[in-house]
Write a protein that binds this DNA or RNA. Structure first.
Lengths: 351, 351
DNA sequence: GTGAAAGCGCTAACAT
DNA sequence: ATGTTAGCGCTTTCAC
């Protein structure tokens, strides 16, 4: 009964060692339907029969085959989470929250990185299309850069999808909307309150990155609303690394342009890079240079002085995305929901 | 043909909107067997037929149902990775490396946290047993604390399993063995070279944690080999957080026992906590207090002065675990392999 | 090179 | 309360 290698008429063989529902049924002297009912807690099975079945399941070490179950039910209790990277405080925080939320909702999490950058389009596409989507009950996707193809692929999928995005116009899908603007404006105004506009700087991440775009725009509009005309050197783009922050600060310092600055960094890492470069160069913070980071990762409480930063609701993003997904799966007909999450300044010691 | 809600004799209905292999076969005027061959790149299908099939697949947007495929092939191209937590540099590094390796090997990664602590045994068990194991082609499990039940569950599973462990005796499974001893000894000796043994401290993580056990033992044996008798206050346990490090240092400082110390911390976070507390208390590092961390996370390059630490091959752990798993899946008969990864001191500026 | 047909191990009517 | 049975959508012989 499944314990022996067998050949049927068409030569299809059972897997040796695998215990099937039929084996349990035989052992418990019931039909497979009854076993199935016990497994799924369905209908009323006689208490005594159920006990017999459970004993058999236990004794044989039976585990239902999820493939077979899924084939009928079309459910796997698996959720996908696609983010640009798995590393660093930022994604790490989202991921952990998502995992916890998924568990709470009775799901498991399949993580995958997908390169937001639309570079070798074909390559990114493969990554995404290799995803065993039909095995997933739903999928949350975080969009940080333009990436038409892969996105299109997901968007047009029949799968329940939740987007983590900045763009409120983002289609008819459930969306977690993150608003960088309020926090970035707040930070800029805060900086402006003690430093002249011409000494303000924005040192951002990748120019194509949606967050960076939104953050820099907010920075610029606050200044322009105050009638301050920006010089090109006041807004720079690089990447989300400490090295970039340090490099920027070193260059600014050697041009004699760092002292007296108040800088809004694209994220906490960049801010940290700027801080170390400034401090290594003998500048004090916030005395000579004021710095505000972005994201409110744990990093910001680790620096000395502790970094003022714009809080990103990272855990909330992960949690909401999964909750939204679970809701969507439960009710596929519900109209698309938009969850708005906002950012705000956390004043600490560097500003 | 799958595009309409239908009822068969037993009332089983097709999913509306789902394109099946039969639909493709019909459209391409071939049998489903041929479509299957094209999908799987099998056998020689006439070049022209294949083209026709591919066109139909494309046109209909057909995606093979993974459940059905898995039911026959017993393969999902999904790997599980179970770690105690998903957060922080430590796990984050492992996870990213594992994800990359999995992708390279043609797999996707299902992550799950499982509480190493054997606390509410039943609860942990449920977490693990709710894992859709039969959906996975294999699983890598990181063990950091005793947890008999859940572990037993996984160990006895028929699934290919790779253990990430410290215990060389860890059974007949493939194992990534991490040796904390060499690094911890090296660090202790390094500290000892400029600080008297009675001023050495070990400030570890949770006492039950395997890493902490191994690290503290190495610390103690080096001292005892030198004929130094340890006082109880020289080895303390807490948790892997900066707060614990800070608390320890503050208490030591207020007992007047911090200055002159050389401490080996259980991880970089603890080390960082100790550093900040010492610096806040007006002590200089490494002048008044010498500190060595553990793990060589990015944190260690972020502190000022930069933290000496014991390098843990985190990326290597993730990569090797997945590679080993892939190898095991490819050849289930191969004899269990043990991959030994070791640790070593990275001298920076705090010691 | 292609098709027919037999299942893989389940779930869910339907019947009793 | 339990059994019978028809598939779910694929892969894989085997025959042609």
């Amino acid at each position: 009964m499944g314990s022996e290698q067998q050949s049927g008429p068409a030569g299809v063989r059972k897997l040796a060692g695998a215990v099937s529902i039929q084996d349990v049924a035989d052992a418990a002297q019931v039909s497979i339907a009854t076993v199935s009912r016990v497994i799924n807690g369905h209908q009323l099975v006689a208490i005594e029969t159920a006990a017999r079945v459970r004993a058999a399941i236990e004794r044989l070490g039976f585990r239902p085959n999820r493939f077979a179950q899924g084939l009928m039910t079309r459910k796997s209790k698996l959720l996908g989470l696609a983010v640009p990277d798995l590393h660093g405080e930022f994604y790490s925080s989202i991921l952990r929250a998502a995992d916890t939320a998924a568990r709470k909702a009775g799901y498991h999490l399949l993580v995958t990185t997908f390169d937001g950058t639309g570079k070798p389009a074909a390559e990114g596409d493969e990554l995404i299309s290799s995803l065993p989507m039909s095995l997933l009950d739903g999928m949350a996707v975080m969009i940080t850069e333009p990436n038409s193809r892969a996105l299109e692929y997901i968007r047009t999928s029949a799968l329940p999808v939740v987007m983590i995005d900045l763009d409120p116009s983002g289609g008819d899908r459930d969306t977690i909307l993150i608003d960088n603007t309020t926090g970035a404006r707040e930070a800029t105004e805060h900086l402006l309150s003690a430093t002249p506009g011409s000494n303000l700087r924005f040192v951002g991440g990748p120019e194509a990155n949606f967050d960076t775009v939104q953050r820099s725009r907010a920075f610029m509009s606050v200044l322009s609303e105050r009638g301050i005309t920006l010089r090109p050197d006041q807004v720079r783009f690089g990447d989300y690394t400490m090295e970039w922050g340090r490099r920027w600060a070193q260059e600014a310092a050697s041009a004699g342009a760092l002292k007296g600055c108040a800088v809004l960094a694209g994220n906490d890492e960049i801010a940290w890079g700027i801080m170390t470069a400034a401090q290594d160069g003998g500048l004090s913070i916030p005395g000579d240079v004021r710095v505000v980071g972005f994201d409110d990762t744990r990093l910001s409480t680790l620096t000395r002085p502790r970094l003022s930063t714009v809080h990103m609701p990272l855990a909330q993003i992960g949690t909401s995305a999964i909750e939204l997904l679970a809701r969507r799966i439960a009710d596929p007909q519900a109209s698309p929901e938009k969850v708005r999450l906002s950012t705000s300044l956390v004043k600490r010691e560097t500003s």
